[in-house]
Amino acid sequence: MKEALGLSIEGMHCGACVRRVTDALGKVDGVEVNLVEVGSARMTFDPERATLEKIADAVNEIGFTVRSEK
């Protein structure tokens, strides 16, 4: 069963940042990106394939800081 997840993402300031975060999240197995805008992201994920830690790591690896809004 998929779960909804909202993230507050620090360091996103422009459209290029949005694109980088969208791409990073899209590469995490089990994640479906619904909306990414400056400062936040909304998605659904399959907890059997993706964890909050994996999702946060994907965003942190490209230089942003994640806070969960779940």
Rank of each mutant, 00 (worst) to 15 (best):
C14W: 05
E48S: 10
M43K: 11
V33R: 14
D57A: 13
V38Q: 12
I62P: 03
S40C: 03
M1W: 01
P47C: 08
K27W: 00
E69A: 11
S8I: 02
S8G: 02
P47I: 02
V33Y: 14
A41W: 07
E48K: 05
G15D: 12
V36D: 13
G15H: 09
E10D: 15
T22M: 11
A24F: 06
L52S: 03
T44F: 11
T51D: 08
V28D: 06
V66N: 02
E32Y: 06
T65L: 02
D57S: 07
D29H: 06
A16R: 10
F64A: 01
V31D: 14
L5A: 10
N34R: 15
E10V: 06
V36A: 12
L52H: 10
E69M: 14
E10G: 13
T51F: 10
E10I: 05
K2T: 09
H13E: 13
N60K: 11
L35A: 13
G39M: 06
G15M: 07
D57T: 13
A4H: 15
A41T: 12
T65Y: 01
P47F: 08
K2W: 13
K27C: 10
V31G: 14
N34H: 14
G39P: 04
V59H: 01
H13M: 09
D57H: 04
C17Y: 08
G26T: 03
E61F: 01
G11V: 03
L52P: 04
A56I: 02
N34P: 00
D46W: 06
T22Y: 13
V18A: 09
T44H: 13
E48G: 06
V21N: 12
A24K: 06
A41E: 07
V21I: 05
E10R: 12
V59W: 01
V36H: 11
T65I: 02
G11R: 03
V59C: 01
V28I: 08
S68Q: 12
N60E: 15
L25R: 06
C17F: 07
K2D: 14
F45H: 05
F64H: 00
M12H: 04
V21R: 08
E61Q: 13
K27I: 00
H13S: 15
A4E: 15
L52I: 14
T51G: 14
R49H: 13
G26E: 07
D57L: 04
A24T: 03
V21G: 13
S68M: 04
R67V: 05
S40Q: 11
T44R: 15
K27S: 15
G11N: 06
R67G: 04
A50C: 10
T22H: 15
L5K: 10
I62H: 03
V33D: 15
T65P: 01
C17K: 05
F45I: 00
E3M: 09
C14K: 08
I9N: 03
A41V: 11
A58E: 09
T51N: 11
F45E: 02
R67C: 02
V66Q: 02
T22F: 12
T44V: 14
F64P: 01
N34A: 14
N60F: 01
A50E: 08
P47M: 07
A16V: 05
M43I: 05
A58N: 10
N34I: 07
